Amino acid sequence: MTNPLSTPRIAHVCKPVYNQALMAALCATALQGSLLLMPGAAQALELDYQHQYNEKDRDHTDKVMITQALDNGLAFSFQFVASPAEKSNGQPGQPFEHMTKDSLKGKVKYSHKLTKHLKFKPKFTYSQGKDKKSYKPALKFPYELGYGFSATPGYYYKVTTYKDAKETKRDNVWS
């Protein structure tokens, strides 16, 4: 008889049953997020799922995001966006049916308290979709005015490149 602990086995983290694309995305997102877990430093792990319906286009979108926040103010997020494939007659797909990847997004952000009322929040986001890629460094300075009010001046620079011959888009935004 062999010792079950010494026998190598292949671990199945996820077994997609109904919707293979959506379940595979959930598994991949969870696995990527689990790599960020650090013993003793974890402050919060958040899983956010959204199902959206656009009444005008009659299409559905599903978003899954996992965020790991650490005690030192650093946070990592990964988001997967999927939608049902269009039917052969051109009609929008049914919810959770033949899901296709729309985009992947990764985000790193940091929050540091400069004074009692002022924070420093840099952020970097990378997004990859079907026909475009973008990256966006950003900087915000939230200031608590008191009585539940705050002001958040900020800046971001976003660069979007497209797979086709479309020109690269660059946005400089002050808010």
Rank of each mutant, 00 (worst) to 15 (best):
T125R: 00
K133S: 10
Y156W: 03
V108S: 01
K87G: 04
H12I: 04
R170E: 15
G73T: 01
S83P: 01
K132N: 13
S34C: 08
P84I: 06
S34K: 10
L5E: 15
V159C: 15
V64Q: 15
F120E: 01
M1A: 12
T161I: 04
G73D: 03
D48E: 12
Y110N: 00
P95V: 05
F96S: 10
A138W: 00
L104H: 03
V81P: 01
K166M: 11
F78H: 11
L139R: 00
V159W: 11
T67S: 14
V173W: 03
M99F: 02
K63N: 11
H112S: 06
Y143H: 01
K15F: 07
K113S: 15
A82H: 14
P8G: 08
K136S: 04
K130A: 07
V17M: 08
E46W: 02
D48W: 07
D59R: 14
P137D: 02
K87R: 13
D102I: 07
A75L: 06
P39V: 04
G93I: 04
L5G: 12
Y135A: 00
K163L: 10
H117M: 11
G154A: 09
G148P: 02
E97G: 06
A41Y: 12
V108F: 10
G106R: 05
D171F: 02
Q91N: 09
V108M: 14
G40N: 07
G146D: 10
H117I: 07
L31G: 09
G146M: 07
